[in-house]
Design a protein around this nucleic acid. Structure first.
Lengths: 147, 147, 147, 147
DNA sequence: TTTT
DNA sequence: TTTT
């Protein structure tokens, strides 16, 4: 046990795909989607401008997963905050590793989904009461299950 | 190019090993070391306390790498801030992926190395002038090379 | 001296006013503007929804100040990152205190200014070479002057 | 209401004083303490090294306040994360302003208090069951009251 | 003083 | 696979 450690990731980027949901039962579900961040720099030797893009595997759970599924789609820009988690599993006898960002806070910075919805010019202004407001959304805290 | 993206990682954790240096030439070098973060949670079903540890591959360059090599060793606690970077390469014809944290700011929160140095009770207070102070150390900015 | 300290502020909010510039000389200038962040919560006793807004005094210098002046205006949404700084001065014999955010990184998340500019549909795509690109902009590092 | 805003402060610093508690009733209390962060820079004109210290007013509530009172004291180093909040009040007919950091996460990085406790070499390892573990402590979430 |  |  390593007390006094901090594991925090903050990203602003664009969804490379829609949110894929997986339901375990009525209560528990997980959503996954990729986010791209990029940066440009000038190659010192050649002098040319290079852009490099990094892809991040976002994982959200339960209520926050449902909000993401409802309001986010491919291309949207979001702010997310979470933790780096290493996952390993076996596939065809080969050990596979992957790094995920387990996100507990999400803020939409743009959205395509609801701009086309009739009678709903902006999802941040008019929300169906059954769903949490899609602004800064935090994960429920009373949740001790690992992913 | 994706303007307006943010890619930020903040970690406080302990070194799982010493800093491994690799020199490209006189000017350019890279240092690598693993950092562990952990968290405890209670398994809802079984009621038992579980601790999970995540390991992060830290990458530092040039001046900051030299500072890390000089002042950090296995077991030390550090604050680091950087970017998530995906690296892929081929090994024996198999594509390998790894996620690294390219760190540009480091602050020592404990050190073993220099506590044994005679006449130097605290490396943060009394530093040899030849080396940068081992407190909050930032990467030089005039650096356009990719890792 | 307190080695090993961290002072970091991350804000996403809207400009309450345009950037006000102050030039010291050819090289040095400072820009100031207010940013609003808000949050909503439900008053436990009365059950009514309350929104509270906080105003933050942003301070930028030199190159970053010029970028802010050029691309930001009242109402725009931005990401900024910086340090908390306390300033005190005397006015009419009374001590005054104020807290500022000295920002060294800024990313535009929306802009009004340049959407109206002819031949320039998006300031993030087409930038005059004399000015830095208005995406993620970082302060020059070779700067040891206090504000 | 301003959807899509972020207000985040991350500090590592030392307590300038003990935690001062104020109890409203059995359930609700608030704790306050100052944290110092510092930085050194070289004055360009004079060439001399200058250290500047900033003081931050930390505010914690309820469970987190009790943990802070129990484990933190003057001189300790802590990591805190929270929000910037502006407070204004009137004193003798004069409007007063102050900026506070409303903290919802705290991690102890050093402690004096419990090192002297018999049979308790490390408060992070051995905790009385009546109190939350003093490592990474988060505020309870089901709390809609403003400060 | 912003924004939704 | 995104975005500009």
């Amino acid at each position: 046990m390593a007390a006094g450690t901090i594991n925090k990731v903050i990203l602003i980027g664009n969804l490379g795909d829609d949110v894929k949901m997986h339901y375990f039962d009525d209560q528990n579900c997980v959503g996954r989607f990729p986010i791209a961040t990029s940066e440009s720099y000038t190659n010192k030797t050649t002098g040319e401008k290079v852009t490099s893009t990094d892809w991040h595997n976002i994982v959200v759970r339960n209520g926050l997963a449902k909000v993401c599924e409802k309001y986010l789609s491919k291309g949207d820009k979001v702010y997310v905050e979470g933790k780096l988690k290493n996952r390993q599993w076996e596939q065809d006898g080969v050990k596979r590793y992957s790094t995920e960002i387990h996100v507990n806070e999400m803020t939409m910075l743009s959205t395509k989904k609801n701009l086309e919805t009739p009678n709903n010019t902006n999802p941040q202004q008019h929300q169906k009461p059954s769903a949490p407001a899609p602004k800064a959304v935090q994960e429920e805290e009373n949740d001790d299950l690992p992913f």
